[in-house]
Amino acid sequence: MPSKINSSGQKVWQVRDRNGQLLNWALWMGAAIIFYISWMKISDQTTWFFVYDAPRIAADIGGRALPPKWEYITKLGKPIWDTLNIATLGTMFALIMAVPIAFMAAQNTTPSKLFARPLALLIIVSTRSVNSLIWALLLVSIVGPGVFAGLIAISIRSIGFCAKLLYEAIEEIDETQVEAIRATGGSGWQVMVYGIVPQILPAFAGIAVFRWDINIRESTVLGLVGAGGIGLQLQSSLNILAWPQVSLILAVILVAVVIGEFVSAKVRGAII
């Protein structure tokens, strides 16, 4: 027990012993120094004049942006439709790709621990480490600007995310149910369809809806790098400093995100 005996021989209770206390203190000190240095770096690269001026600029932008240019909404129908499609179809393609990868990655279903599993884990980590905007940037430079690039970008980014959650669900299944199907003499695929799939189906549906919700958010900004959707309008409005259009677009995005979250919450509630 961390306690020590003081000069007059009485025990003094402490949460930590002396070395622990020193270490704890040193860690906090180190963290504070790192934070201070980092902050100074940011500060060096900041034109503080602009920052002091920020409230006025913010008020200025706010003044120009309001009220939103409502009639511009007629031009947003197609971009919103594209955004929805990028998110929905992107999630769909990602799930199609993620299922085999997840089965390859899960300890209990992988065909080979030496080859398939590491490969699947590599795909998972590399696709999910890179933000969908970067994937979009890459795909725009490969297949050219447009909705197609956005769709592929969203798909790729979602593969790792879905496959990771799915393979964790596969690893958590009840093995005795699988064993029971195997004991009836079912083939490998039958064991899969009767023993494993029913157990992971709820997780699968949950992941699909969860990722769809995220993809709605992400696909709204893909247009900033030319990958289609409502972000394109945002980018062009920003370029010409058309603030009333910007505020309308932001409002539309906000509504889309809220609807997306509402729908996904409803669907998840219905499944579970």
């Binding site: 009840d174 149910q177 029971a180 199907i181 009836t184 079912g186 009767y194 029913p198 709820p202």
Partner: peptide, 18 residues
């Protein structure tokens, strides 16, 4: 060790998988 998310009938018929 029934497959809990399948129906009773599916569980029984799973005995015929072989």
């Amino acid at each position: 060790a029934l497959v809990e998310r399948l129906t009773v009938m599916e569980n029984i018929l799973s005995g015929r998988l072989g």
